[in-house]
Design a protein around this nucleic acid. Structure first.
Lengths: 101, 101
DNA sequence: TTGACATATTCATATATGCATATACCTTGC
DNA sequence: GCAAGGTATATGCATATATGAATATGTCAA
């Protein structure tokens, strides 16, 4: 267990900021939370659960996949998304820890 | 240790997203990291350490203070900033944990 | 191949963000 | 009060982001 880590490199900061900025959006955060809680889901399940437009869901999902935050796999006609970045999962846990009091 | 918390409320998601978006910026993340490592610092120390414009530093600092991420106290001519949100500190720790490997 | 369903992409537009420059404000010592 | 150092604000501009609507693509079954 690290006490207090060293200064992050400029590159590490840039990467981390990109990730945080990406999940710092209400819809994207809801998507991540859903996938984190309920496991992988297809696009239809996601946009129906969150009551958002299909195109909007698809756009955010693609964005997060491009950033390496989500992974996707196709099964026939469906595309299933899941969280693919351990940092993201941990950050979500932090958020939860400070909410369910 | 919580297993897997319940769904966050819409309001909690909105708040968390605002915070994450705010720290998801290279300069702001560097500022937070500096304050987290070195303790409270005044504006001059911050912009000289990070080699950024004074006005830019001030703008980011004010933004983060408005969002409740940083606290500030004036001592004479200097204004000292420090991290004021435990979630932020924890998130930074998460980032570190996944970097110093 | 056609139809139906699931998903992705494109486009236009509105809004937000980031930064630099200049300038204003505040506090202290003289 | 004035000067100087430290901090904050205002403005303009370039760029990025978010959204909705429309449309395209992909996959499967009949």
């Amino acid at each position: 267990m690290p006490i207090r880590s060293d200064k992050l490199s400029v590159e590490a900061v840039r990467q981390a900021a990109t990730m945080l900025k990406c999940i710092g959006h209400p819809i994207r955060l809801q998507i991540i939370e859903l996938l984190d809680r309920a496991g992988e889901q297809n696009v239809t399940a996601i946009y129906e659960t969150l009551k958002i437009e299909q195109a909007v869901a698809s756009q955010h999902l693609n964005l997060m996949r491009d950033k390496g935050i989500l992974a996707s796999r196709r099964d026939g006609v469906n595309v299933y998304y899941s969280v693919d970045d351990p940092r993201v999962t941990q950050v979500i846990d932090c958020i939860h820890d400070h909410c369910d009091v």
